[in-house]
């Protein structure tokens, strides 16, 4: 059992990272910290994909002429991670700008406070 866990340690670490991000997303009322949690989850997925693409004894897929290496890692997860990073950057920027707008309106980053004030505003109008 322990041997299996050690063998799959990259997957395990990515799951732990994912869980940390998930808990942060749930438990922190601060919106910036929620975004950090989401980014942690993104990073864990990238680690998982990169680990999936590894081939034992493989080299980075730079195919030089006349090199003695014949084993290369799988290039497909590399492309997937590239796409994921770009999407993560885009969503983070969008979330941060939305948070900025919320802060300008309610002067707080706390989600509970924002919801409270928004509900109050709805009741009054």
């Amino acid at each position: 059992m322990l041997e299996l866990i050690l063998e799959q340690r990259y997957y395990m670490i990515s799951i732990i990272l994912f869980a940390i991000g998930f808990v942060t997303l749930f438990l922190h009322p601060n919106l910036i910290k929620k975004i950090i949690g989401l980014n942690l989850m993104d990073t864990s997925i990238f680690l998982f994909l990169a680990a999936m693409g590894y081939v034992g004894g493989g080299q980075a897929p730079i195919i030089e002429e006349g090199s003695s290496w014949t084993m290369y890692i799988n290039p497909v997860p590399g492309g997937l991670v590239l796409t994921g990073i770009v999407v993560a950057v885009s969503t983070t920027a969008l979330f941060l700008s939305l948070t900025h707008r919320l802060y300008r309106k309610y002067h707080s980053l706390n989600l509970d406070v924002i919801l409270m004030l928004a509900k109050k505003g709805q009741e009054d109008t």
Binding site: E7, Q8, A51, M52, G53, Y54, V55, G57, V76, P77
Partner: peptide
């Protein structure tokens, strides 16, 4: 397994 040569991926 991590680094398996026969992985379906």
């Amino acid at each position: 397994k991590f680094g398996d040569l026969n992985a379906p991926a």
